[in-house]
Design a protein around this nucleic acid. Structure first.
Lengths: 152, 152
DNA sequence: GTGGTGTTGTTAAACTTTCAACCGATGGCT
DNA sequence: AGCCATCGGTTGAAAGTTTAACAACACCAC
């Protein structure tokens, strides 16, 4: 680490920065677009994960892991979503420490409204800007990144 | 928008989520690695931009734009960096509204310490995990994203 | 069963970011 | 000159996130 740092060459440098800036702009844009539904991209992802789960519910820890968030952050966020009646919390019978976060009907309905709009945004601002090969490359690389870094 | 949403096909879906999760993990990791220097990745990027600028200084607005941050956020962050004596603020002679953010010697020294470590992290957790072609693809795509979304 | 150890989820407090209002400086425009 | 829309930056409060500590429970060994 000390001797002979392998700096990025200038192409890599440029690509790295493009990624940083592009990601920042993309997330800001998607967030912005969702705000008309009273959601942030983070809230949205939570609702999506719940909507896909059996019985539309997940344990808090499981949800936190899938989103790579701290349990604490999730507790706060779900608290807000619960106040907005988009999510309901119920305690888990089989493990009394556990808590289910469950999508309400209102939550599902809102998601149905927001999803087409959001997906269109993802297409317009990312997917459709990339060739299929390039987009596949992104999938490959970030899969490897996740794999490499591992859980938490 | 209303009729016939063009949903992502399942490959695209997988790639999109890999990107979301991978990015979350990558940023968390890089952030973590920098914490030993008392910096977050955001602070680090600020110091880098300043270090590259002529006379190691930039106007606040210019810096904010390059990092895609709000001016307000930058004001707060630079305030903290200034308290840590890594950055100095001086008012701009030619435009009295303006403020220069300037890297101090201590800031530069800290950056020199942190940079090799950080770059190694970027390599290990991203660059070296991708083939050169795939990494170039990332650059291309996010360039297009930035371009498409445009400034702020 | 008892005791130790780890897990789940929440909480309070500290910290960071966002939001909206603001102020002085600037640059037209008439 | 005077007006005024805009720019550059800051401010303080509100909103959101992190950190560390904690209570309740689960699990395993004994």
């Amino acid at each position: 680490m000390m001797t002979g740092t392998r700096w990025l060459d200038s192409e890599q440098q440029v690509a790295w920065r493009a990624y940083l800036l592009g990601t920042a702009r993309l997330m800001a844009k998607l967030d912005d677009d969702l705000r008309q539904f009273g959601l942030g991209i983070n809230d949205y992802e939570i609702l999506v994960r719940l909507s896909e789960a059996p019985e539309r519910r997940l344990r808090m820890a499981e949800l936190a892991d899938r989103l790579h968030q701290s349990r604490s952050r999730l507790t706060h966020t779900v608290g807000r979503l619960e106040a907005a009646e988009l999510v309901r919390r119920t305690s888990c019978k089989s493990d009394k420490r556990g808590v289910w976060a469950e999508l309400t009907d209102a939550g599902f309905a809102l998601l149905e409204q927001a999803a087409p709009y959001h997906v269109e945004g993802v297409r317009e601002n990312l997917v459709d800007l990339a060739s299929p090969e390039d987009f596949a490359a992104i999938g490959r690389v970030f899969d490897a990144v996740s794999e490499h870094i591992g859980q938490r």
